[in-house]
Design a protein around this nucleic acid. Sequence first.
RNA 1: GCCCAGGUGGCGGAAUUGGUAGACGCGAUAGACUCAAAAUCUAUUGUUGGCAACAACAUGAGAGUUCGAUUCUCUCCCUGGGCACCA
Length: 799
Amino acid sequence: MKAYDHKKIELKWQKEWEKNKIYNAPDKSPKPKYYSLIEFPYPSGDGLHVGHPRPYIGMDVISRKKRMEGYNVLYPIGWDAFGLPTENYAIKTKQDPRVVTIKNVKNFTRQIKSLGISFDWSREINTTDPKYYKWTQWIFLQFLKKGLAYKDKIAINWCPVDKIGLANEEVVAGCCERCGSPVEKREKEQWMLRITKYADRLDKDLDTVDFLPHIKLAQKNWIGKSEGAEIDFKIGKNMVKVFTTRPDTIYGATYLVLAPEHELLSKIKSEVTNWNEVQMYQLAAKAKNELDRTKEDKDKTGVELEGVTATNPATGEPIPVWVADYVLANYGTGAIMAVPAHDERDLEFAKKFNLPVVEVVTPDGILINSGRFDGLKALETKQKITDFVGGESVTRFKLRDWVFSRQRYWGEPIPVIHCADCGIVPVPEKDLPVELPKVKNYEPTEDGESPLANISKWVNVKCPKCAGKATRETDTMPNWAGSSWYYLRYTDPKNSKAFADKKKLDYWTPVDWYNGGNEHTTLHLLYSRFWHKFLYDLKLVPTSEPYKKRTSHGFILAQNGEKMSKSRGNVINPDDIVARFGADTMRMYEMFMGPFDQAIAWSEEAIIGPRRFLERVWVMGARVNEAPQAQQNRVRVGAPGERVKRRDFAVPATLNKLIKKVTEDIDSMKFNTAISSLMIFSNEKSDSISKEEYEIFLKLLAPFAPHMTEEIWHALGNKSSITLAPWPKYDPNIVSNEEIKIVIQVNGKVRGEILALPDVAEEALKAQAMALPAVAKHIQGLEIKKMIYVKGRLINIVI
RNA sequence: GCCCAGGUGGCGGAAUUGGUAGACGCGAUAGACUCAAAAUCUAUUGUUGGCAACAACAUGAGAGUUCGAUUCUCUCCCUGGGCACCA
């Protein structure tokens, strides 16, 4: 074999694999299925930087290993191609976003293929393909049919720069997630999806899936389930409902607070003697945007409603009523009973406005000042007190309904028609997809209407119901729509009769392992779980959860630890790395550089390490290949005196250990330590290795460096791909019969070591230990208090 | 403010039922090869003192439990990320 030349090897095998379709997953197989998934990329004009492929490589290692372990592995790829950057780029360069998308996809495809990722390219999908978004629209119509899609005039988050409505999830600290400009509130008719109807199940079913704990936690916090009670308080002739999670503290409720937007205020207007002041406060609160509210640092403000009082239903005492914006109109009932003794915010407010504070719970959780409930444990009395005051136990969530419409061009058209007589009419299924018309100008309008609104030819249609004059909906869907169900389409990407065939869904779903970014935990991951549950309720998918297991990866940062971005000019292009070092080296380095789930800075210097390792493996392969046949087949290990058949290769203990280590490390995504143990093995075995041992070693390396291992594998005379070779098995019962090191400590400090067989007698070992000169020196003339022996590990002599 | 993750050599990082801290890799130093350089190979490489044997110190800081703590407990500091008046 010649010197290791990645340029010759890598392209050759990529073509060969593609030709033989070895990564294409058949829909029928005697093998058990395994569905591994990565978040499909958004094909931007900038192409890949070295950070993008990290998750693809990680899941590729897992997918390759699973294939070798005998699974029918589905590892698909596609494009989440609708979205603002492409649209903005199209506007700027006056091109059709379709053309831009095709160009970008082509570039991404070339880049990803150059890395030797074992994707099944025959199942490639694209969310902007009308054949795909036909089904996105179809699913939307099912939501509409079930009353889960509705139109509502709401105050939406409006980005004045991008000219687009944003979901709550897309507003970061009062600013647009994309462009960073402050978000305004605008009243607008918007399509909404009733995700809140699924809040409880989205929360509860987290217990049934294998997601990393921090992912579950983030989802739980976002859904924000809290159990409490709604209790009526009398204000004059009117009643006001408050929501509380601590009904047990009601005896300490010394005042009541309404949100500035609370509807009761206008009803009791005439009874309030300082109405002018209250009205001023309402107006001031309305003028505040998200950013102001955040900036104000929680400095409490409020106005007392003079002339009215509320009645505490537990004590029967009158309490003052206040209006304050620390109470939110859109959570709970927009009104609270304030218990300053046991709530920080209420206490802050009470202090500022000199309101009474009554303690009702002792530090050890016992009720006081609570009438007939005195002496009971507070938390256990919630239900009793709720019943006593005629309240009702309820569960509330922070999760809001999902704002589903965008006033943009480059998205799926929402498939409904507005008719003056019939109202909102869904586009009949036979007319799907509602295709995006070609337009001259993609620019959004100042008044916030979609560019589609200007195309009268497309907008004006006949009503499907009454055939009268009607207009199309011109809003499009957010880019989260297409990604909410794409993993289902992979199971049957070309189906024109359904989003996927039932049998194929039954076979492939759920996804066995889904790896993705943490930034999608409360967005994409939650949305797709919601869509999946909805489809499950319609009996269209076989499981209630889409993903069995979810893990996440850390980002790759620029050399200086900053985020990699075009604007900072610190982007490292994988094309350069592949050209200089090869795809295998790049793959190895990305897996070796640090823990997979942690962010890490790219290093231009350190990448040479994995390359050197691969070169050593290559040289070793050449040596094995050139060794005489007899030596290649020699059997190196067997019990003493035992006759070992030539073909029965007994795996030596060190290799057995390596198999175990690499197997377990890949399963738990500890790729860095898997590679390090491969390096250790090759360092130890650089002088002498049998062909059998070397081939096992190659197989362990194959998921990381598929091209090079394939080349050597064939050079060694193997005819089929190493990709399909069986994964090496380890014997958990093999124990090394080599001598092991026992460390000798005196008072916890290492003073020497003894080589001994694992089953050596304890007493003999202790005697030997004390006799060691270095040990004897430290225990001389001192009383030995005790000796601790940890089997096979150490002896500690305490003096 | 609350929640989550983390803090170990010059650098990335290893080390879990508590048992040799610094594996593996990068970098650095010296040597071999070479006319020379690169590449490669060999050796050394936590800090301090010492020619050395060796000794002391060392996992963000401080305490505690233990024969023994990077690992467990408590208090605090710092970094990154998330949430942000959710009653």
